[in-house]
Structures are given as C-alpha cells and as structure tokens.
Amino acid sequence: MNSLNMLGDFFLSPVGINHYLGLSAILFCIGMVGVLRRRNVLVILMSIELMLNAVNLSFVTFSHFTQNINGQIMVFFVMTIAAAEAGVGLAIAVTIFKRFKEVNIEFFEQLKG
C-alpha cells in the first residue's frame, strides 16, 4: 500500500527531479537490453549510444536542479567521447564486414591484430 501511494505521488506531483531521473533510468535499461540481446554490431553500438544519452540526461537533470553548471561540462565530454567511440566501433565493424560479409557479434572472436 505504501508503494502504491508512492506511485500515485509520482504521477500526480508536478514534474521535478524524480521524473527526469526516472526517464533516464528507463532509457538506460532499454539500452542495456539492446546491448545484451541484439547480435548485430551496429545495433549494439546504437544501444550504447542510448545508454550514454540516459547518463547525459541525468547529468543535465542534476545540473539544472542544483544550479551547478559542472554537470553540463561533463555532458560535453561524454558527447565527444561517445562520438569517438562510435567512430572506432564502426571502423571495426567495417573490418569485420570485409572478411565475413556480415556484422554479427559472433565473428569478433576471430579477430587478430
């Protein structure tokens, strides 16, 4: 009953820090399911981008609700590193495709040097 009251509070109260953090948590877990379940390297990379976006959302949320702008600097860094990670990941995916004509994750164990 207590938890039901908490849920009711959550959906009826004005939008605050909890709502944004909840959205961030849901987005992160969706990305996690994608990384764990998909076999295509491209979709796995996209799911990683989803997870990074969820973390960015929680950074911006805390930055807004505590009026501390350092959180937004962290978002800036995370975005740059996410772009770099996508670049390298896609280069490896191209290498895999050249050899096996498919981008399934199971071929990654065959890579060498």
Binding site: L23, L27, I30, G31, G34, R38, V43, S47, L50
Partner: peptide, 10 residues
C-alpha cells in the same frame, strides 16, 4: 515518445 522509440531501436 522517447521510451517508445528507444524500445523500437532495440
């Protein structure tokens, strides 16, 4: 919208 399309990605 975000949750729906994030699920659609996966």
């Amino acid at each position: 919208i975000i949750v729906f399309f994030a699920l659609a990605v996966v």
